[in-house]
């Protein structure tokens, strides 16, 4: 049993942390989140040149990046492209991603019906043309390519062939969009049972990635809470001496450690295709999503009035945490599946 990331992975982490912190201080992040698109248009080729989009990265390499892009949110469709879309795409399209010229996402949910990733859909394909309406598509307005879940399989559709309606979203750097496909030219990626298995794996991967992001989010919220508790004084003392404040930080710390342990376990299971991958990813998503929310809520409380302002960075993290927790159903949905493993 060895829980450590490799030296190269730790190097990658250090590098990512530095890159993200220097490019996106809190003020810059806020500016982008409040901008019309919510993304940093120039960063994508940079990510490519740093190798973040390479096809030969293992999931454990990516795990480091997911965690760091939670700690300092990366305003670009990194999660959507790498975790949701890339696993379904062919090697040539993968090369377009790696070269920094393509951003992609996954479109599964449809209005007016159950919207979990593995729920059946209506979108259909005839003669290589795809027709259907998708909603809640992550980063839908900034993707160049959609991986679309249709009734009989997965298809690739260029964004130019779709009609995209962006939605303002409280997490300003990860917005969702409605996407309408009317006889859009579609390229088959996988069908039938193969597509179902693939979608299951994409879901595992997405859960692990979101759990890792959640760990980064919770860590930053805790860092902010601890720093503020040391510096802010009331009644002549730093507020961190008061247990009502310090114990919040301790509780967050404990939840964060639990979340981190499960997120790393899930990441390893995904990279090894381990037999426990499904359960590990469910567990990690459930616990890390709620741990991120818990961390942000405690950090907001520990900051008093300033923590409740638009100006302070905390709400950005809080909204990202809510996004992670809400993805494909709350922790209750994941626990219901875990329960099925345990009890049925």
């Amino acid at each position: 049993m060895d829980f450590a990331f490799s030296e190269e992975q730790e190097q990658l982490r250090g590098f990512a942390r530095e890159f993200l912190a220097s490019r996106y201080d809190d003020a810059r992040l806020a500016e982008i989140a409040d901008s019309s698109t919510g993304v940093d248009e120039d960063v994508w080729p940079k990510l490519a040149s740093m190798g973040w989009l390479d096809q030969d990265l293992t999931f454990l390499d990516q795990a480091v990046l997911f965690e760091e892009t939670g700690h300092r949110p990366l305003p670009a469709p990194y999660f959507s492209t790498v975790a949701l879309a890339a696993p379904a795409l062919d090697a040539d399209t993968g090369k377009r991603i790696a070269s920094g010229t393509l951003r992609a996402t996954l479109a599964w949910a449809e209005p007016g019906r159950p919207q979990a990733l593995l729920d059946p859909v209506e979108t259909s394909v005839a003669d290589g043309r795809l027709t259907g309406v998708k909603t809640l598509v992550p980063d839908g307005a900034v993707a160049d390519l959609f991986v679309v879940v249709a009734a009989d399989g997965l298809y690739a559709v260029e964004a130019a062939d779709a009609e995209v309606t962006p939605h303002p979203t409280i997490d300003g750097t990860r917005r969702v969009a409605d996407v309408r496909f009317s006889s859009a030219p579609a390229r088959a990626l996988a069908s039938g049972e193969e597509a179902r298995v693939l979608l299951g794996r994409i879901r595992d991967r997405a859960y692990a990635a979101l759990a890792l992001e959640g760990v980064g989010v919770a860590q930053r919220a805790l860092d902010l809470l601890v720093a503020y508790a040391k510096e802010r004084e009331q009644f002549g003392k730093p507020i961190g001496v008061y247990q009502a404040v310090s114990h919040k930080a301790s509780n967050v710390y404990v939840r964060l450690q639990e979340a981190r342990s499960l997120a790393y376990w899930a990441a390893w299971c995904v990279s090894e295709d381990d037999e426990m991958a499904r359960q590990a990813c469910l567990a990690a998503k459930a616990l890390a999503g709620s741990a991120a929310v818990f961390a942000c809520e405690n950090a907001i409380q520990g900051h008093g009035g300033i923590g409740f302002t638009w100006e302070h960075v905390l709400h950005r993290y809080y909204k990202r945490a809510q996004w992670l927790a809400a993805f494909d159903g709350s922790e209750r949905a994941q626990r219901a599946e875990v329960a099925a493993f345990l009890l049925d």
Binding site: E258, L262, Y264, A280, L287
Partner: peptide, 18 residues
């Protein structure tokens, strides 16, 4: 009850891996 049981299993795994 199913939710509560799953929660404790998840908690147990999180402590194990911690």
């Amino acid at each position: 009850i199913r939710d509560a049981v799953a929660r404790e299993w998840i908690e147990m795994q999180s402590l194990r891996f911690t």
